[in-house]
Structure formats: C-alpha cells, structure tokens
C-alpha cells in the first residue's frame, strides 16, 4: 500500500501531463487563444485588484511590496466618495428605468407595427453612436446651458438617456421580432386578452434579451463619464467623474484602483443574478438549451 501510493500519484501526474500535452497538440490554436484572451482580459483586472490592496508597489516586483487596507480607509473616509457612490447607483437605476419606460414600448412598436419611416427611425438611433460622442455632448451641452440644465440632475439623466437608446431599442426590437406571431395568435385563440398574451406569452419569451439589454444599460450608465462630466459638473458628481478628477488631481494609483474595484461590484452582482435567472429552469428549457 505504502509503496503503491507514490507510484499511483506519479502515474496520475504523468497521465495528466500526457493528456494535457496531447490536448495542446491536438487543439493548439484553441489553447493559445485561451491564454492570450486570459492575459488580455484578466491582466488589467489583476493589476487593478493588486493595486487596490497595495500599500507600496515598486517596479521590478511582480506583486506589491506591501499589502494593506490603509488606502481603503482613506478612500471611504472622503465625503465626496461616500456621497457619489450611492448617488451613482440611484442615478443609473433611474436612467435605466426611464430608458426602459421609453424604449420598450417603442421597440414593441418597431417590431410589431408597419408604419411610415420605421426603417429610418430605427437607423436614426445608430446616429448617436456613429459620431464622436463628445462632439454630440458639446452641442447638447450648449442647448442645456440655455435651458439651465447644466449642473442639474435632470440634465445628467437626459444626457445619459441618449446613451442608452441604441441598446434599449435595438435588442428588444429584434427580440420582439423573434416571437412568432402565431404563438400570440394561439394564446388569443384559447381566450387570453391581448394584455394577458403580452404578459404571459410574449414577455417571458423576450425576457432573456430584455434582461441583457437592461443589464448592459445599467452598467453602461453606471460607468458613463463623458456626458456626466460635461453636463453635471460642478454640482452633480458621479463615481466615474469623481474617479477622473481624483486621478487627475492627485496621482495616487490606489484611489483609482479602489474606486474601479468598487465600481465593478454592482455590475458583477447584477451579472451573477442575471446569469442565475437565465440559467434557472424554464427559460433555457423552453429554448431547448
């Protein structure tokens, strides 16, 4: 027994190494792609996370020379951050909700109705993304200035709404288009009212796409800085805007790292929740996954 143990273990390792090498040989490109992707995606994350928990980090070392949480204390004892974080969350939720309120009925109309100028209108939402965003914001800011919207919360909400239109119109429109009309007719046929058909048949079928659109919109809005910077300052300060000014004014890498780390949390949590929702049971089973 005692002599067999190490043999088994070394057997295991040699077999593992062998099969690993075989896989790499067989599917070399796939593995190469995985490694490159991991470096590209995880590399910056790795650096940010380490910086957030670093007291000191000098150049040649691969990991911080001293770990510690003192910068966390410094960061969260700042009044501006304690104010901006909850404000940013509420603001993003508000913008997402308003965007949904405006865009979801519109996308249903785009998907289900044939009206004059439908195609042009649908394409026009691309326009906001087709040009340098900042130029658009500057011209909007001029209008906002006349309307006294500069430095106000409604002003920031409006400019951030512009940002959300493309995603919140296009994704739900194609989702609604993907629901076969005869599925809705079949529900009408067995006696469901049009409202019930929408709630019990159409909506559940577009839910994965809708939640993806909502999630992306929230995350995009939460990270949006250009519009908020231009329209919001000096009175309205969101987290990303604050991060900009912190990094610009005082070159402490840890502040930036800690704020980015904190900024991830809401989207990471949402992503996990959404994944559970999309994985859980009926939706995926319904789509035959």
């Amino acid at each position: 027994m005692t002599t067999a143990q190490p043999t088994l273990a070394s057997d295991f390792w040699s077999r593992t190494r062998h099969s690993f090498l075989a896989t790499v040989k067989r599917d070399g490109f796939g593995w190469l792609a995985l490694v490159v992707l991991a470096m590209v995606i995880l590399g910056p994350l790795y650096s940010v996370v380490l910086w957030a928990f670093a007291e000191r980090w000098q150049y040649p070392s691969l990991v911080p020379t001293q770990f510690g949480l003192s910068f966390w204390e410094k960061t969260f004892s700042r009044a501006d951050i304690a104010e901006a974080l909850p404000f940013s969350i509420v603001l993003s939720l508000t913008v997402t909700a308003l965007s949904a309120l405006i865009c979801l009925p519109a996308s249903y109309a785009f998907a289900r109705m044939r009206f004059r100028g439908r195609q042009v209108l649908l394409l026009s939402f691309l326009a906001t993304n087709a040009f340098p965003r900042f130029g658009l914001y500057v011209s909007i800011a001029v209008i906002f200035f006349r309307l006294n919207l500069i430095g106000t919360v409604p002003g920031v909400i409006l400019i951030q709404l512009v940002n959300t239109l493309l995603l919140m119109i296009w994704i739900p429109t194609s989702a609604f288009q993907g629901v076969d009309r005869s599925l809705e007719e079949a529900a009408l046929d067995v006696g469901a009212s049009p409202l019930r058909v929408f709630i019990q048949i159409t909506l559940p079928m577009v839910m994965p796409a809708l939640s993806a659109a909502l999630l992306l919109t929230f995350v995009n809005t939460f990270y949006e800085a250009q519009g908020a910077l231009l329209v919001g300052l000096p009175r309205v300060v969101t987290m990303p805007v604050l991060m900009y000014s912190l990094i610009n004014s005082q070159l402490v890498v840890q502040y930036g790292a800690i704020i980015s780390f904190v900024l991830w949390m809401p989207s990471l949590l949402l992503l996990l929740v959404a994944q559970r929702l999309l994985r859980g049971g009926y939706l995926t089973a319904g789509f035959g996954v």
């Binding site: 076969d180 005869s182 079949a186 079928m205 319904g286």
Partner: peptide
C-alpha cells in the same frame, strides 16, 4: 396552426 405554436416556456 400549421406552424408549431406551443409556447416554448411552458
């Protein structure tokens, strides 16, 4: 119906 119209999420 001619097409398959069972509701896929039920």
């Amino acid at each position: 119906f001619q097409k398959y119209t069972l509701w896929p999420h039920m």
